[in-house]
C-alpha cells in the first residue's frame, strides 16, 4: 500500500478551450517547477512540502465539444472523472454558462464524482493556488480555501 494519500483533482472550466488548456498548463507548470518560488508564494506555506512530490491531476474542460466558445457538460464530467483519485475534485470556472453548468451538475447530483465542488475563485490565480495546494497533499477544504484566498492578492 502506498504511503501517499490520494491527491485532490482540479478541473478548469472555461468558455474557451485554449484558455482552459493554457491555464491548466500554467498551473501544472508552476506547481511542478516552481513550487518553492512564485507558486509557493501564491499558495502560502501549504506548498512547502511539495519538493519532489507528484503534481496534482489537472484537467481542462474548455469550450464546446465542436471547439466553439461555450460550455459542455460532457467535457466537464469527463474531465472530473479523469482527475478523480477519491480525494475530491475542485472545479474552477470562468463565467456565465461555465458557472451555471457546473452549479446545475452539482445541484442535480449523480454526474460528477462524489466530493466534487465548485470553488469560488479567480480563474487563473485560483487555479495556480489550487494545483499547488493539491500537489502538496492538502485535502479538498484546504484546496478550496487556498483558491478562494487568491481573490485577496491585490496587484496594486
Amino acid at each position: 500500500m502506498s504511503d501517499r494519500k490520494p491527491l485532490v483533482g482540479i478541473v478548469l472550466v472555461s468558455h474557451s478551450g485554449p484558455v482552459a488548456d493554457s491555464v491548466a498548463a500554467l498551473a501544472g507548470g508552476l506547481a511542478g517547477g516552481l513550487a518553492g518560488g512564485l507558486a509557493g508564494g501564491l499558495a502560502g506555506g501549504l506548498a512547502g512540502g511539495l519538493a519532489g512530490g507528484a503534481t496534482a491531476p489537472v484537467s481542462a474542460a474548455g469550450g464546446t465539444r465542436d471547439g466553439g466558445l461555450g460550455t459542455s457538460s460532457e467535457l466537464i464530467t469527463a474531465a472530473a472523472r479523469r482527475v478523480d483519485r477519491g480525494a475530491g475534485v475542485a472545479l474552477l470556472v470562468d463565467l456565465g454558462s461555465a458557472v451555471l453548468t457546473v452549479k446545475a451538475l452539482i445541484a442535480d447530483g449523480g454526474e460528477l464524482p462524489d466530493g466534487a465542488r465548485l470553488v469560488d475563485a479567480p480563474f487563473v490565480e485560483g487555479a495556480v493556488a489550487a494545483v499547488v495546494t493539491a500537489s502538496a497533499g492538502a485535502d479538498i477544504a484546504a484546496v478550496e480555501k487556498a483558491a478562494q484566498e487568491a481573490y485577496g492578492y491585490r496587484k496594486v
Binding site: G68, S72, L100, L105, D108
Partner: peptide, 18 residues
C-alpha cells in the same frame, strides 16, 4: 438541454425542466 445547449440557457432551462 444541460448537455447540448452550450450556453447559459442550457443549465437554466435544463434545471427548470429537471
Amino acid at each position: 438541454l444541460i448537455s447540448t445547449v452550450g450556453g447559459a440557457s442550457g443549465p437554466l432551462y435544463g434545471t427548470l425542466l429537471r
